[in-house]
Simulated scan of single mutants.
Amino acid sequence: MPKMRNPNSPHSRYKGLEVLPTDHGLPVPELPAARQWTQAEHEQWRQWWESPQAARWDESYVPTVAAMLTYFGKILDGTSNATHQMEFRHLATSLGLTADGMKRLGWAFEGDE
């Protein structure tokens, strides 16, 4: 008979999820001054940094989120190509902003655990 799985093992794929707070209360960092940002990009920046996932980001994530915002702007204004769209999806997943990213990082929203 096979050995029973131990969900508490540090190597278990069944280990507990990290619950993200709905309101983390952290400040929204300033957008990098690399270029002029549109109003839609400013709003999206704020939304991402106020998301529960941002509770696990620090200042070192600013360039990554800004790069994703650049791709987001290209998607919105219709100038994106397949590479921009692919990079946007990849960054969104790696930052935990997609369902797949949340699952890979072992995160859950309050009330979903």
Rank of each mutant, 00 (worst) to 15 (best):
L76A: 11
L26D: 06
H42F: 08
A82M: 14
Q53K: 03
E110N: 06
R46C: 14
R89S: 15
S60F: 09
N81A: 11
W49R: 00
Y14R: 13
A55F: 03
G101H: 05
G73D: 12
A34I: 09
Y71H: 12
T93Y: 15
A33Q: 09
F109R: 11
G96W: 09
S12W: 03
I75A: 05
A82D: 13
E59K: 06
W49C: 00
D100G: 05
G111A: 02
A92C: 03
S51Y: 00
T93K: 15
M4E: 04
Y61F: 15
K3G: 01
L105E: 05
D112Q: 11
G101Y: 03
G101K: 06
A34D: 09
R56M: 07
W45D: 13
P63N: 01
T93V: 07
E59Q: 10
A82F: 15
P2F: 06
V28R: 01
L97F: 10
R46I: 15
L69R: 05
A66V: 03
P27S: 07
N81M: 14
R46Y: 06
P10K: 08
K15Y: 07
T93E: 15
A34F: 10
P52S: 04
P27F: 04
T93R: 15
P63G: 01
M1F: 12
Y71F: 09
H11E: 13
S60E: 11
Y61Q: 15
S94Y: 03
Q47D: 14
A108D: 02
D58L: 00
K74H: 12
P63W: 03
L31W: 07
N81Q: 10
G96M: 05
G106I: 06
G78N: 08
W57A: 08
D77M: 02
H42A: 04
A92Y: 00
G96V: 04
M68R: 11
Q53L: 00
S60V: 10
L105I: 07
S60R: 13
K103I: 01
S51Q: 00
R56Y: 02
R104A: 14
G96E: 06
R5H: 03
K103F: 06
M102R: 15
R104C: 08
A92M: 00
G78K: 10
A92T: 02
E43V: 14
D58S: 04
H11D: 11
H84R: 07
T93W: 11
H84K: 13
L91H: 09
A66P: 04
K3E: 13
P29T: 07
Q39S: 14
M1K: 14
R13L: 11
E113C: 03
T79C: 12
T38M: 06
P21T: 01
F72L: 08
P29H: 00
